[in-house]
Amino acid sequence: MKKITAILAALFIGSVFCFADPAEGYWISYDEKTNEATAGWYIYQKDGKLFGTMTAVHGEPQDQVAYGAKKATPKDFPKQGPLCEMVMVGTDWIYNLENLSEGVWGKGSIVDPGDGSKYTCKIAFHAADNKKYSVDTLEMRGSIGPIGRSQYWKKATEEEARAIR
């Protein structure tokens, strides 16, 4: 009986570490008005928190700094230094999200590299269902208090997320 319990416990623990949360991976963000790709993103866990870094940006040099970010760097931002000197690609603009349930993360932040504004961030994964979601979709919601808006990102391969130009 003890052997069976130990085996089941090992399988359970192994499954937790082997299977990533569905929100993790590569995604492409889209402009809500034009439906054109705006950036590639990599969403990942570090120390039990969720982070997101831009892998490529559309219409800008890939080493472009966030020159429009005139606001001060938030105290809890994961990187030191002025926002206006940070490279857009490779910086964690999404950070410190806590797991609320499988595929749902919140209580973290997102910073708009275009102007430096900080928002409360919530991410929710929606599996393709051939009804409302034709492909795996990540709902990215930024808000200040009760006011916010959502963007819907589409699942991508690493190559697709890095190829946005």
Rank of each mutant, 00 (worst) to 15 (best):
S101W: 00
M86L: 13
I94K: 02
C121T: 10
G68E: 06
G106A: 13
C121N: 11
G108K: 09
V104K: 15
K107N: 11
C84V: 07
T91Q: 11
A69K: 04
W93H: 09
L100Y: 01
M86I: 00
K79A: 01
D76M: 02
I94A: 12
G103A: 10
S109H: 14
W105S: 07
C84M: 13
V111W: 08
Y119K: 05
A69L: 05
Q80D: 15
I110V: 15
V104C: 06
K75Q: 03
E102W: 08
T73A: 12
T120G: 02
P74S: 10
E102Q: 11
F77I: 05
G106I: 12
D76H: 01
C84E: 14
K118W: 00
D63C: 00
V104A: 13
V65I: 15
P113N: 10
E102S: 09
S101P: 03
S117E: 12
D115T: 10
I94D: 04
P74C: 06
K70G: 15
Y119M: 12
A66W: 05
D115N: 15
F77A: 04
K79I: 08
D112V: 11
L100H: 02
E98S: 09
I110G: 11
G106Y: 01
G103R: 14
E98M: 00
M88S: 05
G103M: 14
D63A: 01
N99W: 00
K107I: 01
P78K: 04
A72R: 02
C84Y: 15
W105Q: 02
G108R: 06
E102L: 13
K122T: 14
Y119P: 10
E98L: 02
G116T: 08
E98H: 02
G114Q: 14
Y67M: 06
G68F: 00
T91A: 13
